[in-house]
Nucleic acid binder design. Structure first.
Lengths: 186, 186
DNA sequence: GACATTTTTTGCCATATGGCAAAAAGCATA
DNA sequence: TATGCTTTTTGCCATATGGCAAAAAATGTC
């Protein structure tokens, strides 16, 4: 579980006891590919940290198409982005994942016990949101080929591990267009 | 300045003294259309709150095109989204604006004095980021006409107040395409 | 290895959007 | 109102992307 601590310590400091406390609260879990970590409309208050694998946030747009809003990578936290009782989107394992889970009770205990916890988590949250925002933003202003190439740069190992349809909906193009783009690049 | 307080109180509670303190720290300023509130590469540590008007965040992409990343509306805070010493984008008045400004020193004082300040601000920040993220996200998966129509819904009064070029770059299309779409809708 | 199932690629053609330059419209100022 | 400047619209044509269905390839299961 060093991974988790290493990651957190990039954003603030914790002493030995605090590190113990955090580790104490985690439960390690496997989430197989395609399984949901959270489902739209259901209660979702726990938190997770990805040790291995990639998850995706997705929803259905007005035309009923499934859209991948963003991917969450290894060494990132998973939380309800709206910080509400229920979640409005799906959080699904895009590959087999190994996660650390915090129950909402344990998480609250961490906030109450570790003085800087909230502030550290907020730094992490901000950085993560801005990253996703920027990525999304550049998707709007580039052509399809450029979008795909930046995807490859950002997620170099992902393309062979998840269905193309996820990538296509993330990049805002149809799967056949994506397939043609891949052909042209070869 | 009731606007500011009303807005903050949606996210937490402040007592009379705390409200006084916050108001004490604000300076009211006019920012004329096209003026910059912050410029890429420069130091940017102060904060603002928009009483009237709309600002936009923009940057230049790899092809040197100016891209509007998002708009910040009335009754929202303006801050360096990366929370760093320097800013990497431009924050520009899209219309004449009336702002409340907090110096970075004053802002820090608020954090140090008002126990819940950070937590309130974080809630505000999260909500704002998620809104922008969602908006951006739907831009990727819709066709140009739909994107324009949702823009009109989200910013009903903006279209006649700012150059079409800002809107086009925000929506990820050329200005001539936007112009043609407008023609078709009429 | 053979089969069923899922995922990816391809062909054909329709449509949407882009690029560029000129015209038109709008706006400020004298 | 005339003038110059900026913004928006338009025409013409090129190109990119979508839609749909079938074929091909990959994957899992017995």
């Amino acid at each position: 579980m060093e991974q988790l601590i290493d990651y957190i310590l990039q954003f603030g400091t914790l002493n030995k006891n605090q590190i113990e406390l955090v580790l104490d609260k985690t439960t390690i879990t496997d989430l197989p590919k395609d399984a949901y970590f959270a489902e739209a409309g259901k209660s979702f208050k726990h938190r997770g940290f990805i040790l291995e694998g990639v998850l995706r946030i997705c929803y259905y747009n007005n035309q009923g198409e499934e859209i991948t809003k963003y991917f969450i990578e290894e060494n990132h936290f998973i939380a309800n982005p709206y910080d509400e009782e229920h979640i409005s989107e799906y959080i699904q394992a895009a590959t087999d994942c190994k996660l650390l889970i915090f129950s909402s009770k344990d998480w609250k205990e961490l906030s109450d016990t570790i003085i800087d916890w909230e502030s550290i988590i907020n730094k992490i949250y901000r950085k993560a949101m801005m990253e996703k925002m920027d990525r999304r933003s550049s998707l709007v202003s580039e052509d399809a080929t450029t979008r795909y190439l930046s995807f490859l740069e950002k997620f170099p190992t992902l393309i062979n591990r998840i269905p193309l349809s996820y990538v296509a909906s993330y990049l805002g193009m149809t799967q056949s267009s994506l397939s043609r783009i891949r052909k042209n690049i070869r």
